[in-house]
Write a protein that binds this DNA or RNA. Structure first.
Lengths: 246, 246
DNA sequence: TCAAGATATTGGTCAGTACCATTTTGAATG
DNA sequence: CATTCAAAATGGTACTGACCAATATCTTGA
């Protein structure tokens, strides 16, 4: 086989998409998929490649496998994962239009809290972005984001679109890959409530996030307050293997 | 090598535990692990087995990999994953002693909401368990759990220990594997606040969970109210590959 | 007819090998 | 000395083949 064939994508990715489309179109929950060996023959790839693709789908919660029996379509497909998205992406997935009411940009010293989170000295300059985020024009959260100034020189002069992460990727080649996130339940004080157009002491999520790029560098510390009446947090979670015995 | 050697566990599981122990003991964040080829030689297993183990650790957030560069220990080990634990396991991980103040057990019709969540007819009987859960004797949440009666006959006569999941596993051979969970911010009404020993209108998490066993059957629907002042939710999340381009 | 055991099916594990893509390193070059 | 480019190192993908473990199915015998 020639080296430069038409496949630009990985085979296991093609297989995964093929199967996912097949499932979303015509397969009922608990319906059985072809065996791994059959799939390998049908699609002209190795069985390990099939297994790779099936493994991904299993992690996404799309299928489940029973040894000796077969591979089946999962019952619930509500929310497929533990994945991490920016506000804009999150809202688009919910079929709403993301936006920002205002954006305050400044360069300031990191200070203790942000410095600790980003592993910087407290005097290191960071770009501070404060925004009220909206979905379909309705205020959803107030967001304070801090990014080391050295990583994003010039960002303080203006951000392009709505999505800060797209800006980071396109202008500064920073790829956010992982984040540690802590969520607390709280109630809003007067000023935050006013910005979100709800009564004081309304329930809210307080979210603290430290995001890391593909090299493991801490690139962003963000604190957000989400309106409890307009925002809920849905995840699909798996149980760690070591707790499943007996 | 003889077939029935001492290895009762899978090799990739042994490798995973070996590496995890090594990391937890002596390796600093961002420190480099040996190359996959070196590990394969050192541990006398195939590189594929090493990759399997490293893949698990990557999903757990313990390590990250950079093509062409190497494999490294993750920076933050706060909470290693999007993993899913019972209340008891959750509290034990936080080094607190889980308990229950009271337990009300009953068998009743599922009703609309629970029936929908568990994919049952509204008249199907379910076992209903209501408990106030404590950590170090402090009330943390009120929990309402519903399980199809057919799956757990006799459970209504009493649960054994504190952990319902351990009961399910030991007495009924039900292995909970996945769950869909929705979290909302709210404030407590008078009666819930009284049970949790906090003032009315205190902030709280409202958590709805539908859990599935290894066959994909919905086996549990739970609604819980967590005290916002004593409980925070920390996760390590990853960014989906298809959003990382550019 | 039903139960027990043998057989086939199916996913799970693992060794071996080859080559590709990205990153790092270092030598060659201006 | 800085830049550029080639080579090495390293993780990523893929194929082959074999055997194991759990499950399903068929066969056999009571």
């Amino acid at each position: 086989m020639v080296a430069s064939d038409s496949t630009q994508l990985k085979k296991h990715e093609l297989v995964r998409q093929h199967l996912k489309a097949k499932i979303n179109q015509g397969l009922a929950p608990h319906e059985k998929l072809p065996t791994e060996r059959d799939l390998a023959e049908q699609l002209n790839v190795n069985r390990l490649t099939i297994r790779h693709a099936l493994g991904e789908l299993e992690r996404e919660g799309v299928i489940y496998r029973v040894q000796g029996s077969g591979t089946f379509v999962s019952a619930s497909q509500i929310s497929k994962s533990f994945e991490f998205t920016s506000f804009s992406e999150d809202m688009r997935m919910r079929d709403m239009v993301p936006g920002s009411l205002s954006a305050e940009l400044s360069v300031e010293a990191a200070g203790m809290k942000v410095g600790y989170a980003l592993n910087l000295s407290p005097t290191t300059p960071v770009v501070h972005v404060r925004r009220v985020r909206t979905a379909d024009e309705v205020p959803i959260c107030v967001e304070d984001v801090c990014i080391p100034h050295a990583l994003v020189p010039g960002l303080e002069n203006g951000i392009n679109g709505n999505s800060l992460y797209e800006d980071l990727a396109e202008r500064f080649a920073i790829t956010v890959e992982r984040a540690d996130q802590t969520i607390q339940a709280t109630v809003l004080n007067e000023s935050d409530a006013a910005e979100l157009l709800v009564p004081p002491f309304s329930p809210a999520f307080h979210v603290q996030r430290t995001a890391f790029d593909s090299r493991g560098r801490a690139v962003e510390y963000a604190e957000s307050l989400y309106r409890g009446d307009r925002y809920s947090y849905t995840v699909s979670i798996t149980r760690p293997a070591h707790l499943r015995e007996t």
